[in-house]
Amino acid sequence: MTRVRNIALADVDHLDRDVLPIGTDYPPGHVLDWHEHRRAQFLYGATGVMIVDTAEGTWTVPPQRAVLIPAATRHRVRMLGVSTGSLYVEPRAVPWWPVACRVVDVPPLLRELLLTATGFPADYDRSGRAGCVIALLLHEIAALRPLPFQVRIPASAALAALCRAYLAAPDTGVSNAEWAARAAMSERALTRRFRAETGDSPAVWRARARMLTAVPLLATASVTEVAGRLGYATPAAFTAAFTRTFGVPPSRFAAERAPYGGPYGAAPPYG
């Protein structure tokens, strides 16, 4: 009976199970380079921050959240101090799975179910307790609503390059005029094309991108320090922008840790 922690999906993908739960510990800064899975993936980070890239966008996954990755989606994941729990799901079992990546909250019940599932053998009994836990996991995931922790990447190579460079080094001083010059376009043409390919103006996109880059910084730095690094005049200005973008203040992420220090933030034994 193969246990499912720190093993490769390829070692168990042949098993006749709609859902394969696998827990994995990654060293700080580990990068899962561009790859894809035959199965859909529910990727949960108990600690740290994950950054998921596809050709279409970038999704930042704060601690104790998860990302839903569609089957056969080429992606890259940067792990910033992360211990994960994954569910690899046969596409036929989840016709409701989103067609693009999606960041979601992970309520306590779902977290506990995931912790339980990653303790099952890979060839768990589908008709017993394990099968019931797996079925309930899928019901809980289907009810989750998306969180706004993503930006779209334009299809045009020139605009995509601008966006990738900005995500790597966000700067409040960058203007549409500068981007237009670098893309050899007029400002009006840049704005029109950018909005058509992302749904946002360049300025709105850059503001959201700055907020996304703040999430991993908050894991190791104070709100004041992050505000300064991103070029905000005051911590209050940064806090207002962050809260406006994500609906919660940045202090939520600066303070959050796996609540009990165990795998997946598991609660201590009862009693």
Rank of each mutant, 00 (worst) to 15 (best):
E90R: 15
T245A: 15
R126V: 11
A168R: 12
M79V: 11
N6V: 09
P259E: 06
Y26W: 15
R39N: 06
E36M: 13
M50W: 05
T172H: 02
L212C: 05
L9I: 08
R111E: 11
I22L: 10
R3Q: 13
H75T: 09
R129C: 00
P107N: 08
A142F: 05
R192C: 02
A10E: 12
T118R: 08
V49W: 00
V31D: 01
M185E: 12
I22A: 11
R102Q: 14
P95M: 04
F253R: 10
D13A: 15
H14S: 13
F246A: 06
V103N: 04
A189C: 05
A93I: 08
L115S: 03
A142N: 07
R229K: 13
P216D: 10
L167I: 08
G131T: 11
A255R: 14
L80I: 06
E140M: 15
D33T: 11
V67N: 05
S186M: 08
P27H: 12
P259C: 03
R92N: 08
A158C: 11
A184G: 02
D53E: 14
V67I: 09
V223L: 11
R182V: 01
Y88S: 05
P202F: 09
A142K: 14
V61C: 00
E36I: 10
A207G: 11
P95L: 03
F238V: 00
R74F: 09
E112G: 06
H35Q: 09
N176P: 00
I153G: 09
H14W: 15
L144A: 08
R188H: 09
N6E: 04
T239M: 05
V89G: 00
L136H: 14
R3E: 12
T172N: 06
T60F: 02
T220A: 14
R38Y: 09
L144Q: 15
I153D: 06
A181G: 04
E140F: 14
R3G: 05
P170S: 03
A267H: 08
D16C: 05
D171E: 03
P98G: 14
T84F: 04
T220Y: 04
P170W: 08
A221F: 06
D33G: 05
Y124G: 00
T2Q: 12
D171F: 07
A214T: 06
D200V: 03
H139I: 11
Y260S: 12
S86C: 14
E225S: 13
S127V: 07
P121I: 08
L217P: 00
P250D: 14
N176Y: 01
I153N: 12
G48P: 02
A165P: 02
R244L: 12
A165N: 13
A157L: 15
P27Q: 10
N176K: 00
I7H: 04
Q64H: 07
T220F: 01
W179I: 10
N6R: 00
S251H: 12
L136M: 08
W96L: 10
P154C: 01
L230R: 07
